[in-house]
């Protein structure tokens, strides 16, 4: 039972550090850390959502940034119309823009989920290499769509006039925004931890192991995988909405396939199929990027080969090292 405790201890320390971070940052006189860690939390949410389908479902999606990007664009476009006081949709009924988080964020989640239904329904007809290429291709399709969409800035993207509004909170304040991100990440991790242990989660894990066997047991596996894909896409959409708020800018670059690749790296670096690992992976990747780019402009020259070495020789992820077990969580 020692290892179980070790996992709990690690998680508690991690959570405590994240909760106290704004305080530590101000004590250290580095308030910049708060916004860096907001960014980490946002990518952690995206990476943890990818882990649901990658780590538990065994589906290697290389198009996850599409959901991240569409979530950001929903916030961007709603805010654009709110600022211009123009209608998003004028007919058959009027939909105005909005700068309220209570409107924009659920909308981001919903639209991302809708996109995931479409992408998932097509790509889940295949598996393996096909699945990787198809998710990648659909994400690029969306990327080029937004590049061509001149009305919303095209290639240049869209600047937000300000962050979204929430009753009683000021999202423009970096510390308050940090705690909103943290709350949403914790909520998602808790829900996911329940999810992977529920009967539904068992089915998803069974599909990763042997989908044909699941079908011969009587599971219509396509539906389960699709729903899981949609849940992951919706959560990535929320992460995108948060990202749009943090940087107050959206652009097609958010959906570029290299970003899908980076989210995938975060999951694997932290440990796939562990849910908390991707949070660690996001932190490690972004901190490493931050530090390496201080020393050299060409940090990718070293990061690329390092990534290859990690893949070839150390495949258990940071979470596995920290918690000290190789067995997948749950």
């Amino acid at each position: 039972m020692f290892q179980f405790d070790r996992q709990k201890i690690c998680l508690s320390i991690g959570a405590l550090l994240l909760v106290l971070l704004p305080l530590l940052a101000s004590l250290a006189g580095e308030p910049y850390l708060v916004s860096l860690f907001s960014r980490i939390l946002i990518y952690a949410l995206a990476a943890a959502s990818l882990d649901l389908i990658l780590g538990y479902g065994g589906l290697v999606s290389l198009g996850h940034a599409a959901f991240f990007g569409i979530g950001a664009y929903v916030v961007g476009i709603l805010s654009f119309h709110d600022f211009e006081e123009s209608a998003l949709i004028a007919w058959p009924f009027l939909i105005p823009g909005s700068d309220s988080a209570l409107v924009a964020w659920p909308a981001a989640i919903f639209i991302a989920a809708l996109l995931a239904v479409f992408v998932g329904a097509l790509s889940l007809r295949t598996s393996g290499m096909h699945f990787i290429m198809i998710t990648l291709a659909f994400a690029q399709m969306l990327y080029f769509f937004f590049v061509a969409l001149e009305g919303y800035g095209g290639d240049d993207g869209l600047s937000l006039f300000s962050r979204n509004t929430l009753p009683a909170l000021d999202l423009g304040d970096d510390t308050q925004f940090y705690y909103v991100c943290l709350t949403l990440l914790f909520a998602f991790l808790y829900l996911s931890a329940r999810l992977v242990k529920s009967p539904f989660g068992m089915v998803i894990r069974g599909c990763r192991e042997n989908e044909k066997r699941m079908q011969s047991l009587g599971f219509p596996t396509f539906r389960y995988k699709l729903l899981c894909f949609v849940i992951a896409g919706a959560a990535a959409g929320l992460a995108g909405a948060l990202n749009a708020n943090q940087v107050e800018y959206v652009s097609p670059g958010l959906m570029h396939w290299t970003r899908s690749g980076i989210i995938l790296i975060m999951v694997i670096l932290g440990g796939s199929g562990t849910l908390y690992g991707p949070v660690l992976g996001a932190a490690a990747f972004l901190l490493l990027e931050e530090v390496l780019s201080i020393y050299t402009e060409h940090w990718m020259l070293y990061f690329g080969p390092a990534l290859i070495l990690v893949v070839l020789f150390a495949r258990h992820g940071l979470y596995g090292v920290l918690v000290g077990k190789e067995k997948r969580h749950g």
Binding site: G128, G261, L264, W299, M300, L301, V311, L312, R315
Partner: peptide, 24 residues
């Protein structure tokens, strides 16, 4: 070294190759 590994490993390692060559 990747032929017998999972697809996800292949994706990551070749992604690393891209980073390397682009930066090079």
């Amino acid at each position: 070294r990747l032929y017998k590994k999972d697809h996800v490993d292949q994706v990551l390692a070749t992604f690393g190759l891209i980073m390397f060559f682009n930066e090079l």
